[in-house]
Computed example of a mutant assay.
Amino acid sequence: MGTDGRRDRDERGRARNARPRDGLGRPLPYGVEGVERQPEGVVRAPAESVAEAQALLDAGRPFHAHEVFEDAWKSGRAEDRELWRGLAQLAVGLTHAARGNRTGGARLLRRGAAALAPRAADGPYGMDVAGLLRWAEEAARAAEDGLTAPPPMLRSPGPPA
């Protein structure tokens, strides 16, 4: 609800929470300065989605990376929806773990990995899905132990420069 007691709405009249958010997507009180929010509903090419999400993950903003993946999931090809959904779940798993929800974080990391597993062999959009599966299990174990996992590397590392 807004400060006037009415629901926040976007320019089309749809309900949207306009409260500022912190770097992990938690709502802050009205009037407090939060981090810039990721715009919603942006249609990007798959490579742009991967690059944008990777930059957000590297900056410690997995909640915002999840929003990029969610846009790709909603606007992308039907055959890629599970891929984007799985990536969004990895980002949300990191978000939960960073917020202190160890069990939920680990569970979402493993759920995201399960959604990605069928794509491990084809490496869609240059992504190292097999590497992501290994990373997700390590990150889930780290979350369970209360440790912080490094951000995933979405693309296969190239040859040394």
Rank of each mutant, 00 (worst) to 15 (best):
G93D: 10
P20T: 06
G93V: 07
R12C: 11
A53C: 03
E52Q: 12
D22C: 07
H64W: 04
P20V: 02
A121K: 02
E79N: 02
L57R: 01
A55E: 09
L90Y: 07
L94D: 13
T95M: 09
L57Y: 09
E52C: 07
A136C: 03
V35L: 03
Q54L: 05
A130V: 12
A18C: 14
H64D: 09
R119A: 08
R44A: 13
R61H: 06
A106K: 00
E36N: 12
D80R: 09
L83E: 03
A88Q: 10
A65S: 15
R110I: 10
L108E: 12
R37Y: 11
A47P: 01
R110P: 14
G13R: 11
D128G: 08
G126F: 02
Q38E: 14
A121H: 08
E11A: 15
R77N: 11
D71V: 08
A113K: 07
L108Y: 13
Y125C: 02
A45P: 03
L132D: 08
K74H: 14
G34M: 10
E48F: 07
E67D: 15
V68T: 13
R141S: 04
R61T: 00
G76Y: 05
E40Q: 03
E79S: 04
G100N: 14
A45L: 11
R14T: 13
G34N: 13
